[in-house]
Design a protein around this nucleic acid. Structure first.
Lengths: 168, 168
DNA sequence: TATTGTTATACTCTATAACTATA
DNA sequence: TATAGTTATAGAGTATAACAATA
């Protein structure tokens, strides 16, 4: 049915399925906690956390690094955060094209409010599930994977042959 | 700013961030491949793969196991797949309340069409990034995490103190 | 010309609550 | 009463393409 396709061995499949399923479960509960305690989504939390580490603010492009979203999606999220008073947006002195995004005191307050619960959730679901040695291994392995993917040529490089789609 | 909160150590944070970022990057590219070559989303692919392993079909409830979605979300996806002719829905002979979902030949065709590319993407992004020993470790660790989360009491158990939200 | 960012638009997806029907 | 599933609805999020402004 699949022809001469070399299938991944069971160990590879198990790793892939366990990885995606566990992360989906984890992210779902993380998102619930952030919405319940801070009224923000996981994406917004990630943006606030990134900005929290910068005193001068970041440009939209810098903010987009490390996030998967499109530029317009990021503009949308930044707009929501600005409307809620958690960030400010202003022109960059260095590059007139750029927009500098900075976290506000209220933004830091929200981060401080949700962080304990966030840590509690991740501890309960992730840190408590594996011992310290395995957690170190996990961090090393997934850092490797992340760096590997980031070093790959951009998606559009390989003009993949596009066959007829199901059209859902 | 955060009071006496015990912060996770750097190793824990690194593992968590690397995990979520790497999986986000991986899933994004997997989704692109599935849409380009099969016109289906990652969720729909997962559902088809699950049904592909069952000869008699599965009920909506059985299908929901292993997926994070709400019942209505699953109904929506099943409706899309049915409209596209990739699955059928019919009453279960054993339980009149249940709906039996089964994959069609056309559904199997789509799976066969996208699977090689799917395997190619995961191989390039995940399997090629780590050696065999690490992949086995990853599978073991994440299976542990998945089972741990699944064994946790359902979300609603702990009536978390709900503070004022940002209201985004 | 290339880059930075926004906007308009359309669409996909998800969740909540109310509802039907069967166990 | 509890369970299986659907529907109506509403909202959040995402991507694409066109656009304006600066490098």
């Amino acid at each position: 049915m699949i022809g001469d396709l070399r299938l991944p061995d069971p160990g590879q499949l198990e790793a892939y399925f366990a990885l995606t399923e566990a992360v989906a479960l984890l992210q779902h509960q993380v998102d619930q906690q952030l919405r319940a305690e801070g009224g923000i989504s996981a994406v917004q939390f990630e943006l606030l956390m990134t900005l929290n580490g910068s005193s001068t603010g970041l440009t939209m492009t810098q903010l987009a690094d490390g996030v998967v979203y499109s530029r317009s999606g990021l503009t949308y999220q930044a707009g929501l955060l600005e409307k809620a008073g958690l960030v400010t947006r202003g022109p960059s002195p260095e590059d007139e094209r750029a927009t500098l995004v900075a976290i506000t005191p209220k933004g830091r307050e929200i981060v401080g409010r949700v962080l304990p619960g966030h840590i509690e959730v991740t501890r309960k679901l992730l840190y408590d599930a594996v011992d310290e040695a395995d957690l170190n291994r996990l961090g090393r392995i997934m850092s490797q994977v992340r760096d590997h993917i980031r070093s790959e040529p951009p998606r559009s490089a390989g003009p993949r042959r596009r066959r007829r789609a199901a059209g859902i």
